[in-house]
């Protein structure tokens, strides 16, 4: 799905070669400051690397329109972005940004169940707790049904039990649909039990 060659980004990343396979779950782990988030941002083309080349489906990044790419390769940032309005508004806004067709309320409720959130669609999204907001943001991304999900610590604001439940649901959801999942996590346990591939980054190293 992705092939990274000789990637350099400032003095944060220096990657000789790295591959992410299609329809697989990969976890990125490593100490803070090792460039985990930067790697996701590169794959989302939110930033461009200083040297080297990234290929997506064998096509070099520079020949892919950034917005088109991001509609297939969606990224979820670590701190959830809440846009004001109701839970429904916040779930749908991803589809609106990505200019995709709006879905039914039933589908939205299904997504809320998937992220284990027992709330009404018309509840005020601003009043939710940090963990609840994070799950709304996760639901928003799942709703977009992208080819690739790039998740930056999607469970950092959750307690351990909820975390495992949600990651498990997420992984089985993406596996059933043959989607690719690339996830930054601080939890070695999650990385160990759910991923097909673990990428470990350390500060200013080569791989």
């Amino acid at each position: 799905m992705f092939l990274l060659k000789d990637i350099k980004y400032k003095d944060i990343l220096d990657i000789k070669e790295l591959k992410f396979e299609e329809s697989k779950v990969a976890c990125i782990v490593g100490e803070s400051g090792s460039g985990k988030t930067t790697l996701l941002r590169l794959l989302n083309k939110l930033i461009s690397c200083d040297g080297g080349e990234i290929f997506y489906k064998n096509k070099p990044f520079k020949h892919i329109n950034s917005v088109d790419l991001r509609r297939e390769v969606v990224m979820l940032p670590q701190a959830p972005a809440i846009y004001g309005g109701s839970i429904k508004d916040n779930l749908l806004i991803g589809l609106k940004f990505g200019e995709k067709p709006i879905v039914s309320d039933e589908r939205l409720l299904e997504i809320l169940r998937l992220v284990k959130l027992n709330k009404g669609l018309n509840d005020d999204a601003d009043k939710l707790s940090g963990g609840e907001k994070q799950r709304i943001a996760l639901g928003r991304v799942i709703l977009m049904e992208p080819e690739v999900l790039l998740l930056d610590e999607p469970s950092s604001a959750l307690d351990e039990d909820t975390e495992e439940l949600i990651i498990e649901a997420l992984v089985s959801y993406t596996r059933n649909r043959g989607k690719t999942l690339i996830m930054v996590t601080h939890s070695k346990k999650i990385a160990g039990s759910f991923s097909d591939k673990i990428v470990e980054l350390s500060k200013r190293d080569s791989y």
Partner: peptide, 17 residues
């Protein structure tokens, strides 16, 4: 800025974001 960038991550055009 954070909201704008989060919108870009979801495939928003700069105009939409």
């Amino acid at each position: 800025r954070y909201l704008v960038e989060s919108a870009l991550m979801l495939g928003a055009t700069p105009k939409g974001a």
